[in-house]
Design a protein around this nucleic acid. Structure first.
Lengths: 142, 142
DNA sequence: AAAATCGTAACCAATTCAGTTACGAACTTG
DNA sequence: CAAGTTCGTAACTGAATTGGTTACGATTTT
């Protein structure tokens, strides 16, 4: 399993919520669209709820709905909510401090990765859930 | 183990080569700096060699050296050589085509991820191995 | 010929991940 | 209030990935 698909599933879940009649959908309903298990969806919904992006309600007629309008939810919000780290990891063990390279490489690599992460986040901040829904509409009914 | 540290180790290895006296170092020597096993280093060196970034020589007095000057090797080159995919994965299973969202989400997510990947690569293309070495020099001997 | 070094295959332990089962808590509805 | 629905969460599983390790043959210098 290469990588982490929580991000894809989270965006998918938000899109379902944005397009759901009444603005609400159960974890079962969302799981049916993603084609996975409701518990997996609930875990993601839970993370989105902690980030303040969705509201979850228990009980009969419960389910999830977006906490704000799709225009006010950026993909970066979703990315952060599911704790996706889009960066490669650093060394598994600390490098050898007796070597000039080993002694100084860590901060240099961290800077590098931070730069890349900022570029990534800048890009994702510019796309909203409303953009996703619009793209879906265009593709579904052209 | 979260993520993949081949990228960090590859940049580290290249930095060692760039600063090595004679421009050559053995996998054992590099492994000593990274603080890992020589075979792990050889696997990375092998990938870098396939990408044309380093030249490996067997036998006594063998070892690896950079195939071009540090100014001519970008971090993106290294990133691609080790096959690092800095993007989150798509759905593990195909979404439900009977749902409007499930039917159209895949290309939309792919576009999104492609945008992010381009941003990431643009950033990494602007940094060369010579920049890394310069940063190391600054930190080591200020 | 001997020593050094790479290239690669095989295997291992640890980790992560999505999926699944299970069950209690909370909520709506009749 | 009773019944049914839905979330929240813990526990477990099987598959996949990863870095590490051992081993050994091939190549090259001395």
């Amino acid at each position: 399993m290469s990588g982490n698909s929580r991000f894809a599933m989270a965006v998918h879940a938000c899109a379902v919520l944005a397009m759901a009649p009444g603005g609400t959908a159960t974890s079962d309903r969302i799981a049916g669209s993603i084609n996975t298990n409701p518990v997996v969806v609930r875990r993601i919904l839970s993370a989105l709820s902690k980030a303040g992006l969705v509201v979850n309600r228990r009980g009969a007629a419960g389910g999830a709905s977006l906490a704000r309008s799709p225009e006010a939810i950026s993909i970066l919000d979703v990315l952060r909510a599911v704790g996706e780290a889009p960066v490669p990891a650093l060394h598994p063990h600390p490098p050898n401090p007796a070597c000039p390279v080993g002694a100084g490489i860590l901060p240099v690599l961290s800077d590098l990765i931070a730069r890349a992460e900022r570029a990534w986040e800048r890009e994702m901040a510019g796309v909203t859930l409303a953009d996703i829904v619009a793209a879906l509409d265009t593709r579904t009914a052209p």
